Simulated assay, not measured.
Amino acid sequence: MKTNGNTLFITGGTSGIGLGLALRFQEAGNTVIIGGRRTELLEKIRAEHPAIDTVVLDVASPESIQAAFETVTSRHPDLNALVNVAGIMLPEDLKDPAHVSTSEDIVTTNLLGTIRVTALFTPFLLAQPDASILTVSSGLAFVPLPLTPTYNATKAAVHSFTQSLRVQLADTSVQVIELVPPAVQTALMGQDESGRGMPLDDYLSETMELLGSQPEAEEILVEQVKMLRFAEVNGKHAEIVAMLNGSH
Rank of each mutant, 00 (worst) to 15 (best):
V59Y: 04
L82T: 02
I65G: 07
P62W: 13
D96Y: 04
R75Q: 08
F69P: 00
A68M: 03
I65P: 13
D58K: 08
H76F: 14
D58F: 09
D58I: 05
A67S: 13
A67T: 14
A98W: 01
P97L: 03
E92G: 15
A60N: 11
S74Y: 04
I88F: 09
V85S: 12
V83T: 00
D96L: 10
N84S: 11
A98C: 05
G87Q: 12
P62Q: 12
L57H: 02
D96N: 15
V83W: 15
I88R: 12
L94N: 05
S61N: 05
D78L: 10
E63N: 11
A68T: 06
T73H: 01
E92F: 15
P91I: 09
V83H: 10
D58A: 03
L57S: 00
K95A: 14
A98V: 10
A67H: 11
V83D: 06
T73W: 02
V59T: 01
L90V: 13
L57A: 05
N80V: 05
M89Y: 14
A81L: 05
D78M: 11
P91W: 00
V85W: 10
S61H: 03
K95N: 14
D96K: 09
N84V: 10
A98S: 15
N84A: 10
S61Y: 05
H76S: 08
R75T: 01
P62I: 13
P77S: 06
D78F: 04
L82H: 01
